[in-house]
Design a protein around this nucleic acid. Sequence first.
DNA 1: AAAACGGGGGC
DNA 2: GCCCCAGTTTT
Length: 198
Amino acid sequence: MTALEEKYTLRSFEGGHPFRVLIRTILSQRTRDENTDHASALLFSKFRTPEEIAQADIGDIEKLIVSAGFYHVKAARIKEVSQILLDEFGGKVPNTIEELLTLPGVGRKTANCVLVYGFKKPAICVDVHVHRISNRMGLVETRTPEQTEDELKKLVPRKYWLEINDLMVQFGQTICRPVNPLHDLCPVSGLCKFYLEL
DNA sequence: AAAACGGGGGC
DNA sequence: GCCCCAGTTTT
Protein backbone atom coordinates (compact mmCIF):
# COMPACT_ATOMS: atom_id res chain seq x y z
CA MET A 1 0.00 0.00 0.00
CA THR A 2 1.52 3.25 -1.08
CA ALA A 3 1.22 6.49 0.83
CA LEU A 4 -1.26 7.73 -1.72
CA GLU A 5 -3.64 4.83 -1.14
CA GLU A 6 -3.99 5.58 2.56
CA LYS A 7 -6.95 7.64 3.60
CA TYR A 8 -6.05 11.20 2.91
CA THR A 9 -6.59 14.05 5.35
CA LEU A 10 -5.67 17.67 4.91
CA ARG A 11 -2.57 18.57 6.85
CA SER A 12 -3.09 21.29 9.41
CA PHE A 13 -0.19 23.68 9.09
CA GLU A 14 0.57 25.70 12.20
CA GLY A 15 -2.66 24.58 13.82
CA GLY A 16 -4.60 26.48 11.20
CA HIS A 17 -3.83 29.79 12.89
CA PRO A 18 -3.84 32.42 10.15
CA PHE A 19 -0.92 34.42 11.53
CA ARG A 20 1.26 31.35 11.92
CA VAL A 21 0.27 30.07 8.50
CA LEU A 22 1.15 33.43 6.98
CA ILE A 23 4.56 33.68 8.61
CA ARG A 24 5.33 30.03 8.02
CA THR A 25 4.42 30.32 4.36
CA ILE A 26 6.66 33.35 3.90
CA LEU A 27 9.49 31.37 5.51
CA SER A 28 8.87 28.50 3.12
CA GLN A 29 9.13 30.60 -0.02
CA ARG A 30 11.79 29.38 -2.40
CA THR A 31 12.85 26.65 -0.01
CA ARG A 32 11.72 23.08 0.50
CA ASP A 33 8.86 22.92 2.91
CA GLU A 34 10.57 20.46 5.26
CA ASN A 35 13.47 22.90 5.67
CA THR A 36 10.99 25.37 7.09
CA ASP A 37 9.91 23.16 9.99
CA HIS A 38 12.92 23.93 12.14
CA ALA A 39 12.89 27.67 11.46
CA SER A 40 9.18 27.95 12.10
CA ALA A 41 9.33 26.00 15.37
CA LEU A 42 12.23 28.08 16.65
CA LEU A 43 10.62 31.35 15.67
CA PHE A 44 7.28 30.58 17.30
CA SER A 45 8.93 29.20 20.43
CA LYS A 46 10.25 32.72 21.03
CA PHE A 47 7.76 35.05 19.34
CA ARG A 48 4.10 34.17 19.10
CA THR A 49 2.13 37.23 18.05
CA PRO A 50 2.33 40.08 15.53
CA GLU A 51 3.18 42.38 18.44
CA GLU A 52 6.12 40.27 19.53
CA ILE A 53 7.55 39.89 16.05
CA ALA A 54 7.03 43.56 15.18
CA GLN A 55 8.99 44.56 18.27
CA ALA A 56 11.66 41.88 18.00
CA ASP A 57 15.25 42.67 17.14
CA ILE A 58 15.78 41.88 13.48
CA GLY A 59 19.06 40.11 14.24
CA ASP A 60 17.33 37.83 16.73
CA ILE A 61 14.74 36.89 14.12
CA GLU A 62 17.45 36.17 11.57
CA LYS A 63 19.27 33.81 13.91
CA LEU A 64 16.11 31.79 14.47
CA ILE A 65 15.22 31.35 10.81
CA VAL A 66 18.59 30.76 9.13
CA SER A 67 17.67 27.26 8.09
CA ALA A 68 14.87 28.53 5.88
CA GLY A 69 17.32 30.35 3.61
CA PHE A 70 17.08 33.97 2.39
CA TYR A 71 16.88 34.80 6.06
CA HIS A 72 17.90 38.46 5.76
CA VAL A 73 15.04 39.17 3.42
CA LYS A 74 12.56 36.97 5.24
CA ALA A 75 13.34 38.36 8.70
CA ALA A 76 12.80 41.91 7.47
CA ARG A 77 9.58 40.89 5.75
CA ILE A 78 7.93 39.08 8.62
CA LYS A 79 8.77 41.98 10.93
CA GLU A 80 7.38 44.46 8.42
CA VAL A 81 4.29 42.35 7.80
CA SER A 82 3.66 42.05 11.53
CA GLN A 83 3.83 45.81 11.91
CA ILE A 84 1.42 46.32 9.01
CA LEU A 85 -1.02 43.85 10.55
CA LEU A 86 -0.95 45.93 13.73
CA ASP A 87 -1.19 49.28 11.97
CA GLU A 88 -3.74 48.50 9.28
CA PHE A 89 -5.57 45.30 10.13
CA GLY A 90 -6.14 45.50 13.87
CA GLY A 91 -3.50 42.84 14.52
CA LYS A 92 -5.41 40.25 12.49
CA VAL A 93 -4.51 38.55 9.24
CA PRO A 94 -6.90 39.71 6.51
CA ASN A 95 -9.02 36.98 4.91
CA THR A 96 -9.42 38.24 1.37
CA ILE A 97 -7.04 37.71 -1.53
CA GLU A 98 -7.01 41.41 -2.34
CA GLU A 99 -5.93 42.45 1.14
CA LEU A 100 -3.40 39.67 1.48
CA LEU A 101 -1.72 40.64 -1.79
CA THR A 102 -1.04 44.14 -0.43
CA LEU A 103 1.31 42.69 2.19
CA PRO A 104 5.03 42.77 1.33
CA GLY A 105 6.41 39.35 0.46
CA VAL A 106 2.95 37.96 -0.18
CA GLY A 107 2.17 36.88 -3.73
CA ARG A 108 -0.53 34.65 -5.10
CA LYS A 109 0.82 31.40 -3.76
CA THR A 110 1.30 32.66 -0.22
CA ALA A 111 -2.03 34.49 -0.18
CA ASN A 112 -3.88 31.38 -1.33
CA CYS A 113 -2.09 29.20 1.23
CA VAL A 114 -3.29 31.53 3.97
CA LEU A 115 -6.85 31.34 2.65
CA VAL A 116 -6.73 27.54 2.42
CA TYR A 117 -4.81 26.53 5.52
CA GLY A 118 -5.56 29.52 7.73
CA PHE A 119 -9.18 30.25 6.91
CA LYS A 120 -10.37 27.04 5.20
CA LYS A 121 -11.67 29.17 2.37
CA PRO A 122 -11.99 27.70 -1.12
CA ALA A 123 -8.84 28.64 -2.99
CA ILE A 124 -6.18 26.84 -4.96
CA CYS A 125 -2.58 27.65 -4.24
CA VAL A 126 -0.39 26.75 -7.15
CA ASP A 127 3.23 26.16 -6.36
CA VAL A 128 5.73 24.58 -8.73
CA HIS A 129 4.53 21.09 -7.85
CA VAL A 130 0.91 21.78 -8.69
CA HIS A 131 1.97 23.59 -11.83
CA ARG A 132 4.26 20.78 -12.97
CA ILE A 133 1.86 17.94 -12.23
CA SER A 134 -1.11 19.62 -13.83
CA ASN A 135 0.82 20.14 -17.03
CA ARG A 136 2.55 16.76 -17.09
CA MET A 137 -0.75 14.98 -16.78
CA GLY A 138 -2.30 17.08 -19.47
CA LEU A 139 -4.92 18.53 -17.12
CA VAL A 140 -3.91 21.97 -18.30
CA GLU A 141 -1.56 23.52 -20.82
CA THR A 142 -0.27 26.62 -19.13
CA ARG A 143 2.89 28.66 -18.93
CA THR A 144 2.46 30.33 -15.56
CA PRO A 145 1.21 29.16 -12.14
CA GLU A 146 -1.40 31.91 -12.35
CA GLN A 147 -2.87 30.40 -15.51
CA THR A 148 -2.80 26.98 -13.89
CA GLU A 149 -4.78 28.31 -10.95
CA ASP A 150 -7.44 29.72 -13.25
CA GLU A 151 -7.71 26.51 -15.28
CA LEU A 152 -7.85 24.22 -12.25
CA LYS A 153 -10.66 26.30 -10.80
CA LYS A 154 -12.67 25.55 -13.94
CA LEU A 155 -11.78 21.86 -13.92
CA VAL A 156 -12.02 20.91 -10.27
CA PRO A 157 -15.27 20.98 -8.29
CA ARG A 158 -15.12 23.55 -5.52
CA LYS A 159 -15.52 21.03 -2.75
CA TYR A 160 -12.15 19.49 -3.64
CA TRP A 161 -10.20 22.72 -3.75
CA LEU A 162 -8.97 22.46 -0.17
CA GLU A 163 -7.62 18.99 -0.74
CA ILE A 164 -5.95 19.17 -4.10
CA ASN A 165 -3.31 21.68 -3.03
CA ASP A 166 -1.92 19.53 -0.32
CA LEU A 167 -2.42 16.30 -2.27
CA MET A 168 -0.51 17.57 -5.26
CA VAL A 169 2.30 19.02 -3.19
CA GLN A 170 2.84 15.73 -1.38
CA PHE A 171 2.47 13.84 -4.64
CA GLY A 172 4.97 16.19 -6.29
CA GLN A 173 7.54 15.77 -3.54
CA THR A 174 7.37 11.99 -3.43
CA ILE A 175 6.32 10.52 -6.76
CA CYS A 176 5.79 13.12 -9.47
CA ARG A 177 9.20 14.62 -8.74
CA PRO A 178 10.75 17.31 -10.94
CA VAL A 179 13.33 14.83 -12.26
CA ASN A 180 13.07 11.04 -12.36
CA PRO A 181 9.40 10.75 -11.45
CA LEU A 182 8.50 7.32 -10.03
CA HIS A 183 6.18 6.14 -12.79
CA ASP A 184 6.08 2.59 -11.39
CA LEU A 185 4.61 3.81 -8.11
CA CYS A 186 2.30 6.34 -9.71
CA PRO A 187 -1.39 5.47 -9.37
CA VAL A 188 -2.38 7.69 -12.29
CA SER A 189 0.31 6.89 -14.84
CA GLY A 190 -2.42 5.39 -17.03
CA LEU A 191 -3.99 8.83 -17.29
CA CYS A 192 -0.75 10.72 -17.59
CA LYS A 193 0.12 12.38 -20.87
CA PHE A 194 3.75 12.80 -19.82
CA TYR A 195 4.11 9.08 -19.04
CA LEU A 196 2.13 7.76 -21.98
CA GLU A 197 4.16 9.82 -24.43
CA LEU A 198 7.54 8.70 -23.10
C1' DA B 1 11.43 39.07 -19.45
C1' DA B 2 14.92 38.15 -16.39
C1' DA B 3 17.78 38.61 -12.54
C1' DA B 4 18.57 38.40 -7.63
C1' DC B 5 18.00 36.64 -3.00
C1' DG B 6 20.85 31.88 0.94
C1' DG B 7 20.88 27.51 2.79
C1' DG B 8 19.52 22.27 2.93
C1' DG B 9 19.96 17.79 1.09
C1' DG B 10 20.82 13.96 -2.51
C1' DC B 11 24.24 11.97 -4.79
C1' DG C 1 31.93 18.92 -3.17
C1' DC C 2 28.74 19.88 -6.81
C1' DC C 3 24.29 20.58 -8.24
C1' DC C 4 19.37 20.99 -7.80
C1' DC C 5 15.37 22.75 -5.31
C1' DA C 6 11.96 26.88 -4.49
C1' DG C 7 8.09 32.75 -4.87
C1' DT C 8 8.34 37.51 -4.87
C1' DT C 9 10.30 41.84 -5.83
C1' DT C 10 12.91 44.62 -8.65
C1' DT C 11 15.33 46.08 -12.87
